[in-house]
Design a protein around this nucleic acid. Sequence first.
DNA 1: GCCAACGTTGGC
DNA 2: GCCAACGTTGGC
Length: 157
Amino acid sequence: MPKRYWLMKTEPNVFSFDDLQKLPNKTTAWDGVRNYKARSFLRDAMQVGDEVLFYHSRVEPMAIVGTARVTRTGYPDKTQFDKQSKYYDADSPPDKPRWFVVDVQYVSTFKRPVTLRELKERPEVDGMMLIKRGARLSVQPVSAEHFAFITKLGGKA
DNA sequence: GCCAACGTTGGC
DNA sequence: GCCAACGTTGGC
């Protein structure tokens, strides 16, 4: 299977790219996704080695700040069964979980963040899901071309 | 299965 | 903080 590329959104107030780097192995389970389209990507499509653009939303400036990679394919999101968690889902059957995670590991920080504002002015990324109005998916596919262009803009080492 | 009401996301 | 977009829910 050819490598795929993704973009994952996070609010840095909740979980930031810095937070990811501070974790053991710089790796986390990408939990809390509660959207069926995103769930299907996590469960069915993402493969070990796939590369991820890491995007900070709802912050000034909104920007892609670096890259990560998938290190474990989809498995059930344990927060859906944790009554203390804000992601608890009483309707998710334990024998047939509704929500999934993948593990994501830090790869590299861009020399400069690539802002949403800037991307909107770049014809090279026309059609990219992130820059469409109402592009709310927190896990979205990215074309190899867009991935290459954005990492180049960011000055990835 | 339709669709209005409602809730959430996330850019502005 | 506002509100457009859009996903989900639930009455019929």
